[in-house]
Design a binder for these strands. Structure first.
Lengths: 358, 358
DNA sequence: GTGAAAGCGCTAACAG
DNA sequence: CTGTTAGCGCTTTCAC
């Protein structure tokens, strides 16, 4: 920077002003400086500027798990909006371990990040208290806080449960099961409330034994199927609180010789990319990843600009995406589909099947 | 830090020495300092230390696309090994745009990162030249450099093609097609060479018209199916150069009324998590994400320690993962599977089907 | 083994 | 509009 100043024949402060547009600079001087910058291909040192100005243009993002289809969408869009605002993103994988959370956040604090967005591992995580002892802006994303107020961006989880229930009710299902995420995560309770209350309001009721608590993983969905069917052999639909489990349930039902949606309808939450890759494609309640990420970055930057916490809870609405994994229950289906659900080799109607000659 | 020094009754240099273990410190002094650190819950400022010591313990990772199942695995494991070495990871999404690459890398340079790992968008990307004009350590991951030598970590792409071909040959396939990624990405050419040369060596040949260039996306796989079948109506297997396209092809075949693997075998490359979620589960050539990421971080840190570039090309071997999407071609299959491949409604044998009573 | 002092590269008053 | 000056919080000679 000193070199640039010398070449341009000005002081370093002027160079700084040109770079940061922080004070008016004479057009001719500016031109001189810019030429000098190009000449030595000068790149300002963000560490130094961050040290002095207390802003390294960096935000931290902590997620419970990288390479998890749902969180990856948050990573993608958070990076997108951070970059749009000239912020870099430093990423941390918590590995679903509440203690790891503290470590990473500690690292971020040392790095003087401008703010932290984090998706908590569970409601019990103590990261919040840690952050509340600092003045660093933060936003809690996706997994909200039930016990206190904090800057938060979540989807409308109650609505998600409601939409799932309404869809099943509209199709004529009267006997359904639900697979939840860990119930110490409050969004799972919210989704469940939306689901059960909507069923109740329609005069249906779901038994406790048809509510299965699980952990949002694919394998768990597969493994849960025998138990679900044993408890309630005549059910006609299952709602899983995320797509991964829903896909696991579809796979498990298929392995059991049951057809989706012919025998059992399945739907999830999230709308991860895999939904469209399956046959049948998965009906699901969309998690508004992009809108949520945008809101989180915005809120964080507002806090940062204001210099104090904004304990606002932003709730983003959601919507149902109807695909192929839900249909009316067998007894309401047309005459063309009365194949037995008990035979070992079964008929499956392939959609869009095409007559080909070779 | 000054506070800590005052409380402990020592100088700031001593505090620094205690924190960084950089010079021997008397045990009693150390105890005093550590007590003081805890007392004021002091956290060293990584910006300042980075500015002075020229190392912010930060590495940058550039990927063509976040929330892409293959790259997410690299992100996950790179973060893992970076953190294990006390490095933070700053992440950038290139959005498959060669120009965006330069922007992000420029930002990393300004941030004085200790090194950059990047998965290039294509062989044409000019990021390499940019980095070669600096002294910043870097490693090219996954998508190697064909024109020059550079620090590189790749999987054995030729072997991947070979393994795919050998598997199909062993099953008895004699008429196969291949869907490649963009052929301006050298790994696609390597994979293709391994595939075609192995076929040739077995006395089989694959026509140019059965090699379809595509872009690694799911949708492209789906859309390619009619064209593939039109060119070669009697083929019995398709190898796609990544799982996403393979899954697309499976979906496309299914939409066409064809059974996988009954009518056509399909296999991919990567072994993304979705492979196990599908029915049939996808046979694939495993991309050793974790080993590659580990090698990349190691190489980068070695460069960083050495202070100069290590133009080493590390090639990680791969292996075949056999699942359910590949089988012998129809004419070699047992008598139980002579279902017509032309009927609109088709019989599908459901694996592990189970007799249930309700 | 420890302290004093210089300075990493930049920004932000404060004068002019 | 521009230059001078004083640090940001830390590490690192260089003495002792």
């Amino acid at each position: 920077m000193k070199d640039v100043a010398t070449i341009a024949g000005v002081s370093v402060s002027t160079v700084s002003r040109v770079i940061n547009n922080t004070l008016p600079v004479d057009a001719r001087t500016r031109e001189l400086v810019e030429r000098a910058i190009r000449k030595v291909s000068y790149r300002p040192n963000l560490l130094a500027s961050g040290l002095r100005s207390k802003s390294g243009n960096l935000i931290g993002l902590a997620v419970p798990e990288i390479a998890h289809q749902s969180f990856d969408n948050f990573i993608k869009h958070t990076e997108e909006f951070a970059r749009a605002n000239k912020y870099g993103l430093i990423l941390g994988d918590i590995h679903n371990d509440p203690d790891g959370e503290a470590d990473f956040i500690d690292q971020l604090i040392r790095r003087n990040v401008d703010g932290i967005i984090f998706i908590r591992v569970s409601d019990e995580s103590r990261a919040l208290e840690m952050l509340n002892r600092t003045t660093i802006p933060y936003v809690v994303l996706d997994r909200g806080v039930s016990t206190a107020t904090a800057p938060t961006v979540v989807m409308d989880n109650y609505q998600a449960g409601r939409l799932a229930a309404e869809h099943l009710i509209a199709l004529g299902h009267r006997n359904v099961a639900c697979v939840t995420g860990p119930l110490n995560v409050s969004l799972c309770r919210d989704r469940l409330d939306g689901f059960t209350q909507t069923l109740s309001a329609a005069g249906l009721r779901i038994l406790r034994s048809d509510i299965h608590e699980s952990d949002f993983q694919f394998d768990s969905g597969v493994e849960l199927v025998p138990g679900i069917l044993e408890r309630n052999p005549s059910l006609t639909a299952v709602w899983a609180q995320n797509d991964l489990m829903a896909i696991g349930i579809m796979a498990g039902l298929r392995d059991h010789g049951l057809d989706v949606p012919g025998d059992v309808s399945v739907l999830g939450v999230d709308d991860i990319s895999a939904c469209r890759m399956l046959r049948p494609q998965l009906t699901t309640v969309k998690q508004p990843f992009r809108e949520m990420s945008r809101a989180a970055v915005d809120l964080l930057l507002r806090e940062s600009a204001l210099g104090e916490r904004i304990s606002e809870k932003i709730v983003i609405p959601t919507e149902l995406v109807i695909r192929q994994s839900t249909a009316p229950p067998r007894d309401l289906q047309g005459a063309c589909e009365q194949g037995s659900r008990f035979s070992e080799t079964r008929h499956i109607v392939v959609e869009h099947a095409v007559e080909r000659s070779r």
